[in-house]
């Protein structure tokens, strides 16, 4: 049996959570004030995920960069692969919020989508 201490990132409250694990299985979560804390804790110790936000270059746009995000959360250990995959991406303006900038980033099955409208110049 082991325990892990976590801080919930579900909302600004930031509850201190304690997760008890037995043979890799979560047996108990304490310290949370809401069900979201319980869910976060279980996921965080088994398959932690994050939304990743970044920027990619824009050609012919009114702005040289457009900010992008993963369309949903990706495994935490893929964050750097995701960042690396964005290095060489260049999109051409106009760009609209929701445009897929890069499909299936780093083999996660999750797309990178634009998060800002950039007009062509």
């Amino acid at each position: 049996m082991s325990t892990r201490e976590l801080t919930c990132i579900g909302c600004p409250l930031g509850c201190s959570l304690s997760v008890t694990l037995e043979n890799g299985e979560v047996t108990a979560v304490t310290g949370n004030t809401c069900p979201r804390g319980d869910a976060y804790a279980r996921k965080e110790v088994t398959n932690p995920t994050r939304i990743v936000t970044s920027t990619v270059r824009v050609k012919d746009g009114v702005s040289p960069m457009v900010n992008v995000k993963t369309a949903s959360d990706i495994p935490k250990d893929k964050i750097f692969d995701c960042a690396a995959a964005l290095r060489d991406v260049i999109v051409t303006a106009p760009v609209t919020i929701g445009d897929v900038v890069l499909a299936d980033v780093a083999g996660t099955g999750v797309d990178i989508v634009a998060a800002k409208n950039i007009a062509a110049c």
Binding site: I51, T55, N67, I97, A115, K116
Partner: peptide, 19 residues
């Protein structure tokens, strides 16, 4: 502010700043 976490109260979803 290109990170996410905006709008949970106003739009009931997590948005980036530009969104």
């Amino acid at each position: 502010c290109i990170h996410n976490g905006f709008g949970l109260h106003t739009f009931k979803e997590e948005l980036t700043g530009p969104e």
